[in-house]
Amino acid sequence: MTKPAILTTPPLSAAEQGLVQALQARIRDRIAVAGGWIGFDAFMAEALYAPGLGYYCNGSTKLGQMPQGMTTAEGLAQAAGSDFVTAPELSPLFGKALARQVAQALKHTGTDEVWEFGAGTGALALQLLDALRETGVSLRRYVIVDLSGDLKVRQQERLAGYAHQVEWVDSLPDTLRAVVVGNEVLDAMPVQLLQRKDGVWHERGVVWQGESFGWEDRVTDLRAPLDVDGEHDYLTEIHLQGEAFVRTLGQKLAAGAIFLLDYGYPESEYYHPQRHMGTVMCHRAHHADPDPLDAVGLKDITAHVNFTGTAVAAQDAGLEVLGYTCQAHFLMNCGLVEDMQACDLPMRVAAQKLIVEHEMGELFKVIGLTVGAPWDALGFARGDRTHRL
């Protein structure tokens, strides 16, 4: 998602207040059943995915375009009605470039299916399908896995022209032969919070304190994958659920490749001593805040990805790493700059945000995985950073 504005969030409507209260009650009951405390991963799962109430399941707009020239929170909310914009909404050239990598992977692996996880508004699916059709790639079907029922409706409307080719499923088959794509999927998977206080590691969880949620830390044997130098207090995340997802994909993938795009770092940067406040962040109405306990159900909650953990989980499942690089290098390797040169100025300006360092170009990374021996994937031809994982 693009860098959010630092603005005061708009006040809650009566309907929003009702949703927050209903979700609070649900989570409060879960806390009570658990004995008064739940881990942050359990809280995050409820806040994002509780049926009918969680952020991705309650019908809010979520994804959209950043309005131009809007300088107030009210203006942003009224103009867009959304919380953040992802790369496919920012520019159709994103999907066009990624399609070249997908096409190469389909051909090299002898597969004829694309599976997309967390398809958002369907913008990326449409861009990939259009680009693959234009280049004559034979694709038997395009399969979408998405936990959000309301986003699925938006996807079906957007992809109506490919209704004969696109399918939606709720689970993975025993065996998968496909090229898998996931843009901003791993960052939305629940994480556990670890807090080092006075040299002792705790797991940070959530409790109910009278009229609101609060934090409570409990001593734990859990640790970050790297020792964090220093004696200072330190907050961070571990990504057991995201890594389990990658491991499951690897176990089921009999042929094909996986391309995951998200914001994050290799673990040597993720668990740097100076990154002592963690990476959890919330997004609402195109601006960010660090408090996931407030306005629960109305805000996206994310954490940066530990790409070393992603790679290790993939290798544990028998996959090989094709490459790892920043989004800028990946998209330029896939022909984005040449595509930009053929566009008008507004489209070039929008697409530039995908690759410039202070926007999405450096913060976002791409990792490629495959079954069997690695091959020379187009997106990692220059600027590969696998050695940093």
Rank of each mutant, 00 (worst) to 15 (best):
T2H: 02
K3H: 11
A5G: 00
I6R: 15
L7K: 12
E16C: 07
L19F: 01
V20P: 07
A25Y: 05
I27M: 12
I27G: 05
R28T: 12
V33S: 05
V33P: 00
G39D: 13
A42T: 13
M44N: 02
A45K: 11
L48A: 12
P51D: 11
P51M: 11
G54F: 08
Y56P: 10
N58E: 08
G64P: 11
T72S: 15
T72A: 06
L76E: 02
L76F: 15
S82C: 15
T86H: 00
E89I: 01
S91L: 05
F94V: 10
A103R: 04
A105V: 00
L106G: 03
E116P: 09
F117G: 08
G118E: 11
G118Y: 07
G122T: 07
L124I: 07
L126S: 14
L126K: 15
A131I: 13
T135L: 08
G136K: 12
L139P: 07
R141Q: 15
R141P: 06
V143L: 12
V143H: 06
V143K: 04
K152E: 10
V153D: 09
R154T: 13
R158P: 06
L159I: 11
G161R: 03
H164S: 13
T175D: 08
R177P: 00
V181T: 03
V191R: 10
L193H: 13
L194W: 01
R204K: 12
G205V: 07
V206T: 02
V206L: 04
W208C: 00
G210I: 06
G210D: 07
W215D: 08
R218Q: 14
R218K: 15
R223H: 12
V228W: 05
E237P: 11
L240N: 14
A244E: 14
K252M: 03
G256K: 01
L260G: 07
D262F: 10
E267K: 14
Y271M: 02
Y271R: 04
R275A: 09
H276A: 15
M277E: 15
R284H: 12
H286Q: 03
D289R: 08
D289N: 13
P290T: 03
K299Y: 04
K299P: 03
V305E: 08
V305I: 13
G309E: 01
T310Q: 14
Q315R: 15
G318M: 06
V321K: 05
T325N: 07
M332S: 13
M332K: 13
V337Q: 12
E338D: 14
M340E: 04
P346C: 10
P346D: 09
P346S: 09
A350E: 14
A351H: 04
V356C: 10
H358P: 02
E362H: 04
L363H: 07
G368D: 06
L369R: 02
P374L: 04
L378A: 03
G379E: 01
F380L: 00
A381Q: 12
